[in-house]
């Protein structure tokens, strides 16, 4: 059986908000290491990879591996009933038909109990090759969100150019063009406000802004975001949170 108690419902609520528009149904794979999810969007352009490590729960118990097939829209509706500060407990039997969710207020004067039907999802698991990326850019998550939102007003695509001079986000569309260049900065008092660029070679890739804007729904989960790029491979966008991560992969646009 699975029993996983999370001190802050907000983590799960924000995570769901960050993935439910990309993915409709997905298996939550539970093992003794924690709860993970891997799913592609319908168009096979983007992939979501979530890990909530066992040590992020207190307590966490999972006797044998379980795949909980969940409609993310339904889970999101159930989680709307949880307050951000509620303690949330997930429970499932072995070979379960239902997932049980309990929301307790901090002072334990209110306990809400929900049961959600599970579904059978036949989902292929993709092998993601270990990649030593040529460019690793860490920046404030809010900055990345703003850049994606601003440039999506100009064009459907953005070209990200990482070089020793900085990282440049550029878009060109019918109304004109625009770009934002970030230089490396160092803010020792607020590391999450710094921008760092590690580069082994220059990288230039073009991506659909629609997906990037969607990824930035994860902004409330982390102060910083890391973009990892190599020429001709998918972009990795990672939000690290306490007790896990939310990663998005996005296939580039390529020359016809």
């Amino acid at each position: 059986m699975l029993e996983a108690r999370l001190a802050q419902a907000a983590v799960l609520k924000k995570t769901l908000d960050a993935i439910k528009e990309l993915v409709t149904d997905a298996n939550f794979d539970c093992s003794d290491g924690g709860i993970s999810l891997q799913a592609m969007d319908n168009s096979h352009v983007a992939l979501v990879s979530l890990l909530l490590r066992a040590d992020g729960f207190e307590p966490y118990r999972c006797d044998r591996n379980l795949a909980l097939g969940i409609n993310l829209n339904s889970l999101s509706k159930v989680l709307r009933s949880a307050q951000n500060e509620d303690i949330i407990t997930l429970k499932a039997a072995d070979d379960p038909d239902n997932l049980s969710l309990t929301f307790e207020s901090q002072n334990q004067d209110r306990i809400s109990e929900y049961e959600m039907k599970l579904m059978d999802i036949d989902q292929e698991h993709l092998g993601i090759p270990e990649t030593a990326y040529a460019a690793v850019i860490t920046m404030p998550a809010a900055e990345f969100q703003r850049i994606c939102r601003d440039l999506s007003g100009i064009s459907e695509s953005v070209t990200i150019d990482a070089s020793k001079d900085g990282v440049k986000f550029a878009s060109a569309g019918d109304i004109g063009n625009g770009s934002v260049t970030l230089k490396q900065t160092h803010n020792p008092e607020e590391p999450a406000l710094s921008t760092s660029i590690e580069l082994s070679e220059s990288v230039t890739l073009t991506f659909s802004l629609k997906y990037l804007v969607n990824f930035t729904k994860a902004t409330p989960l982390a102060g910083a975001v890391t973009l990892q790029m190599s020429n001709d491979v998918p972009l990795l966008v990672e939000y690290k949170m306490e007790g896990g991560y939310l990663r998005y992969y996005l296939a580039p646009k390529i020359q016809d």
């Binding site: 695509s157 998918p234 996005l250 016809d256």
Partner: peptide, 13 residues
């Protein structure tokens, strides 16, 4: 430019 598919980079395990 055209959108590449992730399936050409990541293969089912």
């Amino acid at each position: 430019m055209k959108q590449a598919s992730l399936s050409s980079f990541f293969v089912p395990q």
